[in-house]
């Protein structure tokens, strides 16, 4: 279903996934695909939040570990991680998350501004907080989150 521009103004589709104890949402417009079990090739001497690279049908895609980016402890070794491929500008970037859970339609009016610090994570990584019945969803600001740091 293609939402009309007017409907789009108030309703947004969010893909929900977990990273550590944080439930994150990402506007589905950014999400290209979700992958499991792709071998990540480690890359050294790069920022620590870069887990490595994967081969996405011939394209070399950088994988960013969301936990490291948020400053959380790494996931236990045995756990299965998922990679959410997002489109940013003209390149695809993989987000390493714990698990992808759901897709919800969020009403704009239920989205609230982010507090400056969300469970220890800087607030500028998020666009807002969406309230579900049971929990809170932190909506990712993908541009800020994946902005390159020039050291």
């Amino acid at each position: 279903m293609q939402p009309s521009p007017t409907a789009n103004a108030t309703k947004r589709k969010l893909a929900l996934f977990e990273s550590g104890h944080l439930l994150c949402g990402l506007d589905i417009i950014h999400v290209q695909e979700i992958n499991k079990n792709i071998a990540v090739t480690a890359v050294h001497r790069v920022p620590d939040y870069v887990r490595g690279v994967i081969n996405l049908r011939g394209e070399i895609v950088t994988v960013v570990d969301l936990r490291t980016k948020f400053g959380f402890a790494p996931l236990a070794q045995e756990a299965e991680e998922q990679i959410v491929i997002v489109r940013l500008g003209d390149e695809n970037i993989g987000l390493l998350v714990d698990s992808v859970s759901d897709v919800v339609i969020a009403d704009e009016k239920d989205i609230e501004p982010t507090p400056p610090n969300l469970a220890g994570v800087p607030g500028h990584f998020f666009k807002g907080i969406y309230k579900l019945e049971q929990s809170l969803v932190a909506i990712l600001n993908i541009e800020k989150l994946l902005a390159r740091e020039f050291e």
Binding site: T41, V50, V53, G58, I60, T62, I93, R148
Partner: peptide, 27 residues
């Protein structure tokens, strides 16, 4: 030769990446 993503381009150690016969990436 395949180009690296923008986060890795600053690293001077790599000139790019390639995909090997088994589908794995080698820098």
């Amino acid at each position: 030769v395949k180009p690296l993503g923008s986060h890795l381009r600053q690293s001077q150690l790599y000139a790019g990446a390639t995909i090997q016969g088994d589908g794995k990436v080698a820098l």
